[in-house]
């Protein structure tokens, strides 16, 4: 039972990262009716931007030393006598990195936001009004463009980036068995849920959120009511790419940085369809479910089968409910 709950909790933590990635796909779909196959690669760019601003830039000669390693006096006093791998040492190490983590996050969010705007303006806007098939193929074309440019700009080596939170093991007993996880994944979990919740609140209570929801409901009516629909499209892409920057930073610190990060987007696409393309709640549930099932299969059947868990689950769910768990059925006119 203890082991079981350990794996379920691991699954929930992975699921929260999936949910964060899925958030981007759903927000783009809801307002523009485009399913972004390249979301994983946008995230990969976020990860590389995070790497640029948190590792490459601080190491540059013109940057002050404290950006790379921040050591105020109170920290030295705090660190006195801390054991290796103890929470105290981990937190101290995290505070050392704090300036460059913050720099990295800010840089990644801004650059990725610009990237999202660029994609929308240059590639998606000219396709406005074309079939959804063309739009999907366009985002598939983007996969190649993004992958190629990433390996042109950054060399294709796997690199390390600083984790977003202090990283030490947390141990406690549950149902009489030892359970542990890394504090960094708890921080990632919290961050992902926080961003998810934040976006929900923005959509519900702000003017621009109302504009986005109105556009999602009916584009031409939204136009008639004076909503700037193209601006809504842009903002949807910016939301997707900025949340993608966070997701990229989390993934890069967890799995390491490599061009294969983009493939993550495809399994998340399966999750999105499983939850229902236009339902944030459904996607959250699906992400958690896939996370849990993945870690349970990893535990019981080995890591290899875990690779195809999202795909098997989505097939089952789609046949059972063709519009996903909580998605709305599309009404078609003949």
């Amino acid at each position: 039972m203890g082991q079981f709950s350990q794996y379920v909790m691991n699954g929930i933590m992975n699921g929260s990262v999936y949910a964060l990635i899925a958030l981007g796909i759903v927000s783009i779909f809801k307002s523009t009716k485009v399913v972004n196959f390249a979301q994983g690669h946008v995230i990969m760019f976020g990860a590389y931007f995070y790497f640029t601003f948190s590792v490459m830039l601080p190491e540059a000669t013109f940057m002050p030393d404290w950006v790379l390693k921040w050591e105020p006096e109170w920290l030295a006093a705090y660190k006195e006598g801390a054991l290796m791998f103890s929470p105290k040492a981990a937190i101290a190490g995290w505070v050392n990195n704090l300036p460059r983590i913050i720099l990295g996050i800010i840089g990644a969010v801004i650059c990725n936001g610009i990237l999202g705007l660029l994609i929308e303006r240059v590639f998606m806007r000219p396709l406005l009004g074309q079939s959804s098939f063309a739009m999907i193929l366009c985002t598939i074309g983007l996969i190649w463009v993004l992958e190629g440019s990433a390996s042109l700009i950054w060399t294709a080596d796997v690199d390390q980036v600083p984790p977003l939170g202090p990283n030490f093991p947390i141990r406690f007993t549950l149902f009489g068995e030892q359970v542990f996880f890394f504090s960094a994944s708890v921080v990632n979990f919290g961050l992902a849920l926080f961003l998810f919740g934040l976006l929900m609140l923005v959509l519900r209570f702000t003017r621009s959120g109302v504009a986005i929801r109105a556009t999602a409901e009916d584009q031409s009516t939204a136009y008639a009511m004076g909503i700037n629909v193209p601006a809504v499209f842009s903002s949807a892409w910016v939301i997707a790419s900025t949340t993608g920057a966070f997701a990229g930073a989390i993934l890069a610190s967890r799995n390491g940085l490599s061009p294969t990060l983009g493939l993550f987007g495809l399994s998340v696409l399966a999750i999105v369809l499983m939850g229902g393309l236009d339902s944030f709640l459904g996607v959250l549930i699906a992400a958690m479910l896939v996370g849990i099932f993945e870690s349970l299969t990893q535990w019981q059947l080995g890591g290899e089968i875990a690779e195809i868990v999202p795909y098997v689950l989505v097939l089952i769910v789609i046949i059972w409910r063709p519009n996903g768990l909580l998605g709305q059925a599309e009404i078609e006119r003949i």
Partner: peptide, 17 residues
């Protein structure tokens, strides 16, 4: 190889547009 990827992707998008 990266340039080939970029050209390939741009070609697809170009065709669609």
């Amino acid at each position: 190889s990266p340039i080939r990827d970029i050209v390939f992707g741009l070609m697809i998008i170009g065709f669609l547009i």
